[in-house]
């Protein structure tokens, strides 16, 4: 997987799934019983166990740390919880300069549970890479401003346009948190880092460039010295792919709304990509899914490297056997033409 991320020759197509450690696995549902999401993220043994579950069940080429993008906010002391069926809820949304000024900086020492989990994971993984991740500043800010997951991000964007100074201060804070979170993971033994900008597709390119890109650039630059491949991913980013690359990514994650061939062409065919099986395809008959995977593998050849993944996270209702079948199939498709 790391070789593909660097554009080196590979002997089989690497594959992993965003949110592979999660609700689609029965063993996950079992160990999570009676424990809140955030608690499970900060209990090192449990987080390690959940991270490793898909490695045991699926022959994926990388583990991805079981965590959540709000975990660093939580550990920084922000009043956040993950409400079942809703997602992250911020009890006191951040909407003014004073709110931003009060945000506590994240002390790397507070991330000790994450480092501990990573040590446990890396020990069991052996040579297989662990991918660390963090939410990108815009997505974190969206949660902080809206107070909960939002479809239209109206409050967030309204703040951004009406009070750019507060906005930039907020994103600068979020960027520091993300950078710290990624650095701690990299230093603890992660082999690649992914910056998730889940909601960024809600922005136009000029707005992204002006209000968001500088902060995402700070995060990616802030971990460049670790020498680990940096994956930059968001959804609905068709128009933003080139700008997201310019932030300093080594790999661009492509969601399922842009055909991989189009994304690669837009990016200039000279950066490795990750993606982009449509999660909905997991619920189609195998021949249809297989043809979809074939098309993605074929398109991926035009990039210097291609890591097979879904275009978004594994849906909770997905059948793990289907994921296993994809992995098995992807691994047996020859790398050579």
């Amino acid at each position: 997987m790391i070789r593909a991320a660097r554009g080196d020759a590979i002997d089989r197509h690497p594959v992993w799934f965003m949110r592979q450690a999660g609700r689609s696995l029965p063993e996950y549902r079992k160990v999570r019983e009676g424990i809140t999401m955030l608690d499970s993220c900060v209990q090192p043994e449990l987080a390690a166990e959940i991270t490793l579950q898909p490695i045991r069940r699926l022959d994926v080429d990388a583990a991805v740390l079981f965590s959540d993008i709000v975990v660093p906010l939580f550990l920084a002391g922000v009043d956040v919880e993950i409400a079942p069926g809703v997602g992250p809820v911020i009890n006191k949304p951040i909407r003014s300069a004073a709110d931003v000024a009060e945000l506590p900086d994240l002390d790397p020492a507070a991330l000790a549970p994450v480092s501990e989990a990573i040590s446990l994971i890396v020990e069991e993984l052996g040579p297989k890479p662990l991918i660390g991740f963090a939410g990108a500043p815009f997505t974190l800010a969206s949660y902080l401003v809206e107070g909960q997951p939002s479809r239209d991000h109206l409050t967030t964007k309204a703040l951004m346009f009406s009070d750019p100074d507060t906005w930039h201060a907020l994103l600068a804070w979020a960027a520091r948190v993300s950078t710290t979170f990624l650095r701690v993971q990299g230093e603890a033994g992660a082999s690649a880092l992914q910056l998730f900008d889940s909601w960024v597709g809600t922005l136009s390119l000029p707005v992204y460039d002006e209000y968001v890109a500088p902060h995402s650039t700070d995060v990616l630059n802030g971990v460049a010295d670790l020498g680990l491949p940096r994956i930059h991913f968001g959804t609905k980013t068709s128009e933003l792919l080139v700008a997201m690359r310019a932030c300093g990514a080594d790999v661009i994650g492509v969601d399922d709304r842009t055909p991989l061939s189009v994304a690669i062409k837009r990016l200039g065919s000279d950066i490795p990509v990750q993606g982009n099986i449509d999660p909905a395809m997991l619920f189609t008959p195998w021949p249809m899914l297989q043809a979809h995977v074939d098309e993605i593998l074929r398109a991926g050849r035009a990039a210097p490297g291609h890591i097979v993944n879904l275009g978004h996270g594994v849906p909770p209702t997905a059948d793990p056997d289907v994921l296993a079948r994809i992995v098995e199939y992807v691994h047996q498709v020859p790398v050579q033409l």
Partner: peptide, 8 residues
Amino acid sequence: RKRFYVRA
């Protein structure tokens, strides 16, 4: 001028 990926 751009990045040059040496695969092997």
